[in-house]
Amino acid sequence: MAPEFSKKGLYEVLEPVSQTLPLVFNSPHSGRAYPQGFVRDSRLDAHSLRRSEDHYVDELFGAAPGLGAPMLLAHFPRAFLDVNREPYELDPRMFDGSLPPYANVSSMRVAGGLGTVPRIVAENMEIYQRRLPVSEALERIETIYKPYHTCLRSLIVRTHLQFGFAVLVDCHSMPGNVRVPGGARPDFIIGDRYGTSAAGDLTRTLVRLFEDMGFVVARNKPYAGGFITEHYGRPAKGLHALQIEVNRALYIDETTLAKKPEFEAVRHGISQALAGLAGYVETYAADSALAAE
């Protein structure tokens, strides 16, 4: 199915004129180019399939290149392939044929229908009318998943070599009904895998930047970061990874998926926070203490 994406490409990197910051931004779930064959073979209509998107997150974080950092964004939709999973988190009940022995068939994400090739979109809506050939899943992994991660890894390595450390910011959105312990509805959740994927000062700085603008911010609960944050975050090696979840109710109508009038204000607030983060990491760009924390 990869040729159906050829008009826009599977993904793209928005490069700054010159990379001046040790930051890499990633938007793996905002893709909205749906292959016609995928929609045709689904039991869901095109609008329902979009409920898995991180709607317009690529636009919300669009200030990144102007600040001096690259941004990788997917054009393929999360409902088709989820690159924020292990490469082979696959549900054997979805496929005709035997999965390879190295497939992870028993993760919690697979059990929940949200593996590398998802079984459901939000609200437990089944995507497919029938089982898929195993070869279809493996083709998506070979032609989309692996090239995407190769690209992301190259951006991180390039940044690390240039600055001595790198900070990956993984950009996502969450449903408006999410609550944290105590019942509050967060506007943003910052995830660092409970302090294991990034230096604590980075996380605290990002939380403070949003809070100073009046947003309600939570840390790690209920979203601590997915595969990307966990996989690429190696603070001891100067590789830091943070996840930012934005509450969709702030900026879209979650029924129609249309942008709200508040969209620009939210985008502006995120841009201000990114500028603050840029200033913070710039201060430490030559400081080996952050790279080694």
Rank of each mutant, 00 (worst) to 15 (best):
L60V: 08
P101W: 01
S271C: 02
R32T: 10
A79D: 05
Y145P: 10
V167C: 08
K146V: 12
I141D: 02
A286E: 12
R32W: 09
Y145K: 06
H47C: 09
A46Q: 14
A286V: 00
A224H: 09
A218F: 02
F95V: 14
S27R: 04
E59G: 07
E282K: 11
E15R: 15
M1V: 14
R85K: 11
L81S: 09
A286H: 10
V57R: 08
A122T: 05
T196W: 00
A236C: 01
P175W: 10
L242G: 07
D82R: 07
L99M: 09
T196G: 00
V110I: 00
E4R: 06
T116N: 03
T159A: 09
H149Q: 03
L14V: 01
G279Q: 05
H75L: 04
R85E: 11
F38N: 08
L49F: 02
P175T: 09
Y232Q: 03
V266A: 01
Q243F: 04
P65H: 14
T283H: 14
L290K: 07
G31A: 07
R248G: 01
V246T: 09
A291V: 04
S271F: 01
G238K: 12
E12I: 00
F210K: 04
A33S: 13
V13A: 09
A286P: 00
A241R: 06
S197P: 00
V157F: 13
R43S: 11
L155H: 02
M1G: 09
R40C: 04
P22M: 12
R93C: 11
D58A: 15
D82H: 06
G113Y: 11
A273F: 07
E139M: 15
T20R: 15
E245T: 01
V281D: 05
A292Q: 15
T203K: 06
F163R: 06
G112L: 05
A286D: 13
L114C: 09
Y88M: 15
N177H: 13
R158N: 13
E230P: 00
K260N: 08
L73V: 11
L44I: 11
F163I: 07
L49D: 07
P101D: 12
E142T: 13
R50Y: 01
M108S: 09
V105A: 12
